[in-house]
Amino acid sequence: MTGNETTIHPSAVVEPGAQLGTGVRIGPFCHVGPDVVVGDNCELVGHVSVTGKTTIGKGAVIHPQAALGRPAQDAKHKGAKTALEIGENCIIRECVTMHCGSDASTGRTVIGDDGFFLAYSHVAHDCVVGRNAVFANGATLGGHCQIGDFVYIGGLTAVHQNVRVGDRAFLGGCSAVVGDVIPYGMAAGNRAKLRGFNVVGMRRQGMARADIMRMREAYRVIFDPQRPLKENLEIAARDFADTPLVGEIVGFMKQGGKRYFIVPPLKGDADEGDEAV
């Protein structure tokens, strides 16, 4: 969408106080609340509800029946004015829901730039979602999740509250993810288990074959059942110090989640991954 003219369909309701950038298009039967900020060249296609203290970055396209900025679905939330912050150039498809933060936590839900959220996906209160995330149809986050950059979440997959998912991880469809997923990891199942690395995604990002092979060697060390995980992490940090990507995984695992464990490999799997590296 180009041009500097902002247009509002006669059937849309834009409440006093809302701030609209240049080139914004508000389609039929949309509702924009008084504390909403809509960036330049955004389009609300039709029947879109944006309420609460919601900020939408420039270039977003939001499709019918999306509901953004509603209060947190948290019994501890007492109704304070909290925020939803959506980055630039996001595509938000039909019936997507994204809630503001809760006053019992950070008070902010944050969505990075260039996200693609397919129909019926959901981002709960106080979540932080990185750049270039893809949520397939029906993908769901519980509250307080932290999702890295370039993460793909498959259709009908649910991520438990407080879970972290590292950069460029892949979560298979129809999975229940109740623990933290390492960067570049590929997890699937109910309950989800690691199935090696997201090698397809790594190749698409231009990662060198040698780096992928080194990471797979480190994976086997980190998840070696013959030693405690803490010892395995120290060995991996020492033996793969020449591979910063391994250091990223080790750092993620040492940091630990708020409440939940690291998703382990499928029993007997030393990294099935994608053999055609």
Rank of each mutant, 00 (worst) to 15 (best):
M186P: 01
K254H: 14
K76G: 08
G112P: 08
H31T: 14
V36P: 01
G172R: 02
R209C: 05
S121V: 08
V48D: 02
V163S: 06
E94K: 11
G130N: 07
D74V: 08
F223L: 12
V134P: 05
I111C: 02
G196V: 05
Q73H: 10
D113K: 07
A75Q: 15
R209P: 07
C30F: 11
A208S: 14
D224G: 02
V37M: 11
H63C: 07
A139Q: 00
G206L: 10
E15Q: 09
V24I: 03
V128T: 15
P264S: 12
V123T: 07
R216W: 01
C90Q: 02
G155W: 00
L141S: 03
R220G: 12
L118I: 10
F116G: 01
F223M: 13
I56E: 06
M186A: 14
T54A: 05
E275P: 02
F240Q: 00
P183A: 12
P228N: 13
C100D: 08
Y260P: 04
T7Q: 08
D126R: 07
E217C: 07
R259I: 14
V200T: 13
G172V: 09
D271F: 04
E88R: 12
D274C: 06
Y152H: 15
E231I: 09
R108L: 13
P244W: 08
V263I: 14
A208W: 03
E217G: 11
G57K: 04
D103V: 10
I262W: 08
V48Y: 03
I182Y: 03
A187P: 00
R131E: 12
V177M: 03
A237L: 07
H122W: 09
G87K: 03
A241N: 04
N198Q: 09
I235W: 04
G155R: 01
T97W: 01
